[in-house]
Simulated scan of single mutants.
Amino acid sequence: MTPGFLRSAVILGLLSCVGPFAIDMYLPALPKVATELDGTIAAAQMTITSYFIAFGVVQIFYGPLSDMYGRKPPLLVGLVLFIIGSLGCAFAPDVSWLIAARFLQGLGGAAVMVIPRAIIRDMHTGTQATRLMALVMLVISVSPMLAPLAGSGLIAISDWRLIFLVLAFVAVLSILMTLFLQPETLAPEHRVPVSLKAIGRGAKTLFTDPVFMGLTFVGGFGMASFFVFLASASFVYTGFYGLTPVGFSLAFAINALGFFAASQFAAGLGERFGLIPMLTWAVSGFLGATLMLLALVLAGFDQLGVVILMLILANACLGLVIPTTMVMALDDHGDIAGLASSLGGMLQMFSGGLMVALVGPFFDGTPVPMVAAIAICAVIAFILMRLTISARLRTPVLPV
């Protein structure tokens, strides 16, 4: 592994942390937000959902803009929007204001999710891209492991509003890193003018590609399962199991550890066994772990240790699924990598937001709705995986 490869992973990983930090640092504060702003649990969860919706909708714009102007200018615009949204959250007088500010924050945070993917595609394809994507995810792994603990610490010394001031400061540091450490990876001669006709043509290519759409939604429903966990876990772990905010943060970090540890093996396993066989086994493992968890919870074995253990296994499978589907979906669309990345991200965020919205009315503070929704995501991902692999095997595969 060359120093330049590792340097790219660290920079892109740190930039990509901004969006997840806006979610993970805030999770321990959700119950307090609901109480302090006189909102319901559903209203507090809506502050998560509004972020996801904005995060998804705007991705369709960042990709084409990065194809036209290069990767860095749209990235900087997104970070500025993120700062404004974070400050709006910090001074929100009520839950409606907070929901709106979180929406603005999501509009900015999407840039640091879409554009690093396109940067990776600018530099590598195939298993090399999978390896870099996995290294980026290793850096991102500090978010679910440290961000909730950081949020709990900030709540202990002040209140939840300080979390958003810290996020604004982190975004400022990210702007400086983008300006001075991240090189532009899209040369002027490779840039594509933005036009509705070009976007429509590219979108039609992607929407009519069953492999791209299938891989996008396989990863999307894998991510949706995690979004359901994000929106529900703080209430389940603190309300049903009686954990403190710090205890929840530790449990959350343990749950996420399986994902990021497994993601580091994605490239190696893909090289050894092939990406398609690895994806098949990983999605099957995700399905098996989540269905077993649901069966145990319904049978009354809903102890905290059981839930955490089974989620570790499920998330370990997702650690192989998500980076692999991201890379495979973009491999055949290098000429419109920005648009493909943004469209794929938008569809995945909609999948996650939809699942959170659907499970909200059924949430009763117990683990059942949460694990049932996660299992449903796994079933959908498995069905899509089988259909997509059939389409992939019928389509000529470009060398990687």
Rank of each mutant, 00 (worst) to 15 (best):
P367W: 13
D364P: 15
Y62H: 03
I389V: 15
V33Q: 09
A316W: 06
L165W: 13
L243K: 08
A316K: 05
S342D: 01
T130I: 04
L243G: 08
V166K: 03
V114E: 03
I99D: 03
S143C: 13
F226P: 15
L37G: 06
A261G: 14
R161L: 12
S225D: 11
M133E: 06
T35L: 14
Q182K: 00
G151W: 06
L81I: 06
V321S: 03
D122N: 07
G258P: 11
W281Y: 12
I119D: 00
I11G: 07
R102D: 14
G345P: 03
P188R: 07
A282W: 10
R272I: 14
V359H: 09
V33M: 12
L14N: 02
A253M: 13
A29Y: 10
A134I: 03
L65M: 05
V139Q: 09
A316F: 09
F227W: 12
F350S: 03
F82C: 04
R71Q: 05
F252N: 13
E184C: 09
A203W: 05
D331F: 00
A253S: 15
E271K: 15
G365N: 12
T290K: 00
G353K: 11
M46I: 11
S249Y: 11
G106D: 11
T238Y: 08
I119P: 01
Y26V: 03
G268W: 07
S50C: 04
G200Y: 01
V114Y: 04
K32I: 08
I84R: 12
Y69K: 00
A134E: 02
F363Y: 13
P148H: 07
T47S: 14
T324G: 03
P73G: 04
A110E: 09
L37S: 07
F180K: 00
F363N: 10
A391N: 05
S96A: 15
P93R: 13
T324F: 03
T130Y: 02
S390I: 12
C17Y: 02
A267Q: 12
L343Y: 03
A150V: 15
G108Y: 06
V136R: 06
I155T: 12
S342G: 13
G305S: 10
L269T: 14
S225Y: 09
D24H: 06
P28M: 06
S390L: 12
S96L: 13
M370S: 15
G39W: 08
Y237V: 10
G247R: 05
G19P: 02
M133G: 04
T244F: 11
G19T: 04
P245W: 04
I60G: 01
P245H: 08
A375E: 11
L176I: 09
I48V: 14
F164P: 08
M346E: 04
A256C: 12
A231H: 05
L393C: 10
T244H: 09
F212L: 01
P20H: 02
C317A: 13
A187G: 15
G109N: 04
R201D: 04
G288D: 07
V306S: 08
A231Y: 07
F164V: 12
V194C: 08
V112P: 00
L354N: 11
S158D: 15
I115Q: 00
T244E: 07
L320F: 12
M278R: 05
T208H: 08
K32A: 14
V58W: 08
G108D: 09
